[in-house]
Design a protein around this nucleic acid. Structure first.
Length: 474
RNA sequence: CGCGGGGUAGAGCAGCCUGGUAGCUCGUUUGGCUCAUAACCAAAAGGUCGUUGGUUCAAAUCCAACCCCCGCAACCA
């Protein structure tokens, strides 16, 4: 039995969970369920990123303690993950004392490649942050939010010596030792790698207090990178636990916006720690609303909970796993969602189950075969390439084929003519293939597939409420 | 000339590497069926394959130039 470690990106808990987070969880979950069906032992990590100035500031604005603020938000994310039926096994909060301690240990191990240097840049005292040179020029030296001129400010930061590892990382990416999917992102990263400077990994406590303390230096706290990226290790108990059974991760799922940190800073850390690099980085696209990025200022943000409430979890998973491309940006519209639900889930699958169950019930047919399920080669191939939407398509074609076959084989005529033997043979064949297709669908829509297995075991009775009722409104 | 991806029926996409009657899903129209959730099955309509030029017996496919859209470059999930 293989041990398979999979990870999800840990969201920054300064807001509500949204559809982008769901994508990450869903892809990792499908992968986890697939591996479990193959007989692998799977660990699926999830967690929350809770430090940093933005969170500190938000809590202050709300007039509550920062601990209270993150606790409240973490609960929202955990509830959300539960609603999506994500089969995770480990959950890391970056404010957890175990994580913080392990994270400091990791910093210590990295310390040969960490140096202190002066950072100088344009700073807005209103925003409490540095701005890039470009931003400075665009705003002609004055912060548009505060109408105050930027000040030249210096501070001490710790830096991580990425530059020492560029060649090694490039080789790992080019050789496929650390596979980056999709291919076009890999190219982007290789290009980016060239001009990646050493990265600043701490902030003086005068600027930021809500973070993990830098070991042996009370004047600095860690900035996001070391803290957040370490979670994939601290989840397993590293460094005090032996993680060799689980390391390296088989796949790490990340949004395209954070791929660069996972493909550059993260491998550099692992190289210093003497750990193998993750086998695959799967970078998924964004979910757009009407072709546009969802943003609060445009006001086109689709709340995932609204989508969940409309037709339930299976419909949610169905849409985002089949109609949202695994790698590229894809559109969500309510119209597309409704079409997918009505035409595909209800008409293709729901109706197929209904008609087969009714045929079986009317003819007192019981399905008593014990089936050994296997995945088709083509399906396995797509799943292995993390082409989940395409694998889902492939499995769905089997469902559509079955609807065609029922029309061709006309079991109702066989019943009418009293050809019982032929009828039983026909129904066996149809139900057998339905259950096989159902098995291939189960990593994607586990709720529905479980119900289908149940319907066709023992006494077959069509469900009184169809699997995907069309008039259903929550 | 920053790097990369793309422009194919009303919509979403495949085909391009390895030239040879343009395909899939949804939508539309018509017909069929009756086991089923006004469901299912079949057929049809619908495209000068971004533009221009070149190579070739033959170009969506190869080559060149141009136009347009998008991503990254920017602490946006």
């Amino acid at each position: 039995m293989n041990k398979v470690y999979l990870t999800t990106a840990i969201p920054y808990v300064n807001g509500e969970p949204h559809i982008g987070h769901a994508m990450d969880y869903l892809l990792a979950d499908v992968c986890a369920r697939y591996h479990r069906l193959l007989g692998d032992e799977v660990k699926l990590q999830a967690g929350t990123d809770e430090h940093g100035g933005k969170i500190w500031k938000k809590a202050e604005e709300l007039g509550i303690s920062v601990e209270q603020y993150v606790d409240d938000n973490v609960k929202k994310f955990r509830d959300f993950i539960a609603k999506l039926d994500i089969s995770y096994t480990d959950f890391v909060r970056t404010t957890d004392s175990n994580h913080e301690r392990r994270c400091q240990e990791i910093w210590r191990i990295l310390s040969d490649y960490i140096y202190k240097a002066e950072y100088e840049g344009w700073y807005c005292t209103g925003c409490e942050r540095f701005v890039t040179e470009k931003e400075y020029e665009e705003n002609h030296g004055v912060c548009p939010d505060h109408q105050k001129p930027y000040e030249k400010l210096q501070e001490e930061n710790y830096y991580f010596k990425i530059s020492d590892f560029k060649d090694r990382i490039r080789m790992a990416i080019e050789s496929g030792e650390m596979l980056i999917l999709p291919e076009f992102r890999k190219k982007e990263i290789l290009r980016l790698l060239e001009d990646t400077p050493d990265v600043s990994i701490s902030r003086p406590t005068s600027q930021l207090v809500w973070g993990v303390k830098v070991p042996d230096d009370d004047s600095q706290v860690m900035y996001v990178w070391i803290d957040a990226l370490s979670n994939y290790l601290t989840a397993l108990g590293y460094p005090e636990e032996d993680i060799t059974d689980w390391w390296p991760p088989v796949a790490q799922f990340v949004g395209k916006d954070i791929l660069r940190f996972h493909a550059i800073i993260w491998p550099a850390m692992l190289i210093v720690l003497g750990l193998p690099l993750p086998k695959t980085m799967v970078s998924h696209g964004m979910v757009l609303a009407d072709g546009q990025k969802m943003s609060k200022s445009i006001g086109n943000v689709v709340n995932p909970v609204d989508v969940l409430d409309r037709h339930g979890l299976d419909a949610f998973r169905y849409y985002f796993l089949r109609h949202v491309d695994t790698f590229a940006d894809s559109d969500f519209t309510w119209e597309k969602f409704e079409d997918a639900y009505n035409n595909e889930l209800a008409n293709d699958l729901g109706n197929l189950v209904q008609r087969l169950a009714t045929l079986a019930a009317k003819n007192n047919f019981k399905f008593e075969e014990k089936l050994d399920f296997e995945f088709d080669n083509e399906y396995n191939d797509l799943m292995t390439k993390y082409e989940f939407a395409k694998a889902f398509d492939y499995a769905w074609n089997k469902i559509q084929e079955l609807n065609r076959r029922i029309d061709e084989e006309k079991p109702w005529s066989l019943a009418k003519n009293g050809e019982t033997e032929k009828l039983n043979e026909c129904l066996s064949g149809l139900i057998r293939d339905l259950l096989r297709a159902n098995y291939a669908l189960s990593p994607f829509i586990p709720g529905a597939t479980e119900k289908i297995f149940e319907i066709f075991s023992g006494e077959i009775t069509p469900p009184e409420v169809p699997l995907f009722p069309k008039d259903f409104v929550a």
